[in-house]
Design a protein around this nucleic acid. Structure first.
Lengths: 340, 340
DNA sequence: CTGTTAGCGCCTTCAA
DNA sequence: TTGAAGGCGCTAACAG
C-alpha cells in the first residue's frame, strides 16, 4: 500500500540522503553551480526526481532576502481597469519567477493598511497600487521598505512613482480623429464631473478643436458614466442642435446610450453623426451597432510597465518618481468610419 | 540625521534587545501568550512599536508548516466569472489572515503546471482552481500535498471537490418565473452548443415546461454567446412565431440582443414578449431597456464556499469530494415584469 | 515567569 | 570536488 499523499513534502535532506551526498552538494547540484562533478549532479537530479522534490521557496526566501513575490493592492476588485493592469503585470512577471499577491482594499483605507502590513510581513519584493480612477490618491507613505508603483490612480506625493493614462492626449486624439473624418460640429457628453478624467479629456479635446479653429457646438454635458445619461443627454443635444455631426463621449457606456438614441431617432451613424467612446471596453464597443470607435488606454501595457519598474528596482536601480502619463490610442470602428 | 529607510527591517532580536528580554520572551509577549508578566509584555510591545517591528511571515511559515497563503489558479483572467469568485474567496479569507496568490494559466496546461509547481514550492495551504465554463476540466491530480477545490469548472475526477452553479436549476427557475408571469408560448435562444451549460439550462427549462404541461414553441436555437446572435435569432423567431410571449436566453448578452430586436420591431417588453437572461451580468442587465431579468449564479457565494472548504481542510476536516451544484436565483427586472 | 536550546529548509562561506 | 558549520527569523520545547 503506497502512500497516496506523502504526509511531508520531500526536502533537500531526502534528496541528499538518497543520492548519498551531503546537503551542500545536493544544493549546488540542483542550483546548477559549476563546482559539482557531472556524475554527482546527475545522481542528485535523479534522486530529486525520484522523491518528487520541490524546493521550498519559503525557506529560500528567508535567507535570500528576496521572496520573489509582489503585492497588488487594489481599491476596487470589480473595476474593469484593474483586470488588464493585473494581466499586464502577470505577463511581465510571468516570464520570471514572480508570484502576485492580490489584495482588495474595497476602497477602505483601514483595510488597505491592514493588507499593506500583511504584504510587508510577507516580505514582498514590491508593491503595485492600483486605483479605479485617475484622481490622485493618498500615498502609502515614504517609509516603505520595498519599491512601490502607483498604477492608474497616481499618488498625491510626487516623490512616488505613478503611471497613469494620458487622458489629455486621449481627448485630443479622439477629437483629432473626428476632425480627420471631416467632422466640424462636435459635442461632448461626459461622465461624473467630480472625476479628474472627465476634465482632462475635455482639456485635450479643446486643444484639438483650437488647433483646428473649432469649438464645441455646445457646452460639454456632464453627469454620470451610464448608458442612461448617454441616452438622455444625446436626446437633448439632437433636439437643440440638429446640425451636430459628431459626439465625443467620456465613456463607452455613455457612447452606447448615444448610439441607441440615434437609432431610435433615425439618425444614421456614422453618416449623419459620428460617435466616439472612451475606454475601449470591448464588451460594450464591439457589441454596439455599429461597432464603437473608442480611445484605448493600453492598460495592459501600463501594468507591464509597472511590473518592469519593480523589476528594475529589484536590480538596484532607483524606482524613479513623478507622475508618468502613458500614451493612449484610438481604436477605430464603424461608429466614426463607414466600412464598406 | 535620522535614517529615512531602515536598510534592514526590524527583527525580533532588535525588539528583545531593546526591551532587555530574551527572544523567547519577546515572542511570547507579542503573540499574546499568557505566561508573561504584564509589565514585561508592555515593555516588549513598546519596544516593538519603537523599532517598527513587523513579524516576518516568511520565517514564521517556515516553522509553522503553514504559510497562511492560498493559490488561486485561473484559466481565464479576463473571464467575468472569476472575478466574483475571487471576491468571495477574498471575503471569506479576508476575515482571517490569509493572502491569495493569483495565477493566470491563460488556458494553457503547461503554464498551469508551471504555476502549480510555483504555488507548491511556496507552500500554499490550499489551492482553488477556477474555470471559465462549467464543462469538467482535467484534475490537477490526486497527489497534491495540499487541499484543493474546483470552482465553476468542476474536476473530471469525482474524488476531487468541485463547486459549480446548478445550471439545471437555473433553467428550471427561469422558466418557472416566466410561467408565473402567465407566459405559455416560450422559446429559447442559447449560446455555444459545445458548452455543457447550454444543455444543462435547457434540460432544466424543459423540466419546468413539462411540469406545467407546456413545451417550447420552437426548438432551442443555439449558436454563440453574443448580442449579435441574440438579434439574429430573435428576428427569425418573431418572423416564424408571431405568437411568442416569452424568450428565455442562455446569456444576458444574447438577451440584450433580443431586447434590441424587439425594440426595433416595435414589440413591447414585457407586455408583448417577456425576456429572461442568464448570468445577471449587471453591466448588461442594468443598462438594458427595460432592465433585464436574469438568473444569478451567486458566484461570490461560490467563492466564499470554496474558501470555507479550504479553511475546513486546514482544520483537519476532510475536504470532501464530488461535484456540488450550488443554488442560483432569479433576479427580476423590467423585462419580465412591468413595474409601475 | 523567563531564558536557553533546538530546529524549520535552504544556501553560503570555508576547510578538507 | 565535496562536506561541515553557521545562520536567515521565528517558535516550541524544556529548564531555570
Amino acid at each position: 500500500m503506497e502512500p497516496q499523499i506523502p504526509s511531508r513534502a520531500a526536502t533537500l535532506s531526502d534528496v541528499a540522503e538518497r543520492a548519498g551526498v551531503s546537503l551542500a552538494t545536493a544544493s549546488k547540484a540542483l542550483n546548477g553551480r559549476s563546482d559539482v562533478a557531472a556524475a554527482t549532479r546527475s545522481r542528485v537530479l535523479e534522486a530529486a526526481e525520484a522523491v518528487g522534490f520541490t524546493p521550498n521557496a519559503v525557506a529560500r526566501g528567508l535567507t535570500a532576502g528576496r521572496t520573489g513575490t509582489v503585492g497588488l493592492l487594489t481599491s476596487d476588485l470589480e473595476g474593469r481597469f484593474m483586470i488588464p493592469i493585473l494581466m499586464g503585470a502577470e505577463d511581465a512577471f510571468g516570464a520570471g519567477k514572480i508570484d502576485v499577491f492580490l489584495c482588495d482594499a474595497r476602497g477602505d483605507s483601514v483595510r488597505e493598511q491592514h493588507h499593506l502590513r500583511a504584504l510587508l510581513s510577507r516580505r514582498v519584493d514590491g508593491i503595485i497600487v492600483v486605483g479605479d480612477k485617475t484622481d490622485p490618491r493618498a500615498s502609502l507613505g515614504r517609509d516603505l521598505p520595498v519599491p512601490s508603483v502607483y498604477a492608474y490612480a497616481p499618488s498625491n506625493d510626487p516623490r512616488d512613482l505613478s503611471l497613469t493614462p494620458d487622458n489629455v492626449a486621449g481627448g485630443r486624439q479622439a477629437i483629432e480623429h473626428l476632425i480627420a473624418c471631416g467632422r466640424t460640429r462636435i459635442a461632448h457628453i461626459g461622465g461624473d464631473p467630480t472625476y479628474a478624467a472627465t476634465h482632462d479629456r475635455i482639456v485635450g479635446a479643446r486643444q484639438a478643436l483650437d488647433a483646428a479653429g473649432l469649438s464645441f457646438v455646445a457646452d460639454p454635458m456632464l453627469s454620470e458614466w451610464t448608458e442612461h445619461w448617454g441616452r438622455a443627454a444625446s436626446s437633448m443635444l439632437f433636439d437643440r442642435h440638429a446640425d451636430i455631426d459628431a459626439i465625443f463621449c467620456g465613456s463607452d457606456q455613455i457612447a452606447r446610450g448615444v448610439l441607441d438614441t440615434a437609432r431610435d431617432r433615425g439618425q444614421q451613424v456614422p453618416t449623419d453623426v459620428a460617435v466616439m467612446g472612451y475606454d475601449n471596453w470591448t464588451v460594450v464597443a464591439e457589441n454596439s451597432r455599429p461597432g464603437l470607435s473608442s480611445v484605448d488606454a493600453n492598460l495592459q501595457g501600463l501594468g507591464r510597465a509597472a511590473a518592469q519598474h519593480i523589476f528594475d528596482a529589484l536590480d538596484g536601480k532607483g524606482i524613479g518618481s513623478g507622475v508618468h502619463h502613458l500614451p493612449v490610442r484610438d481604436v477605430i470602428r464603424g461608429s466614426t468610419v463607414a466600412f464598406s
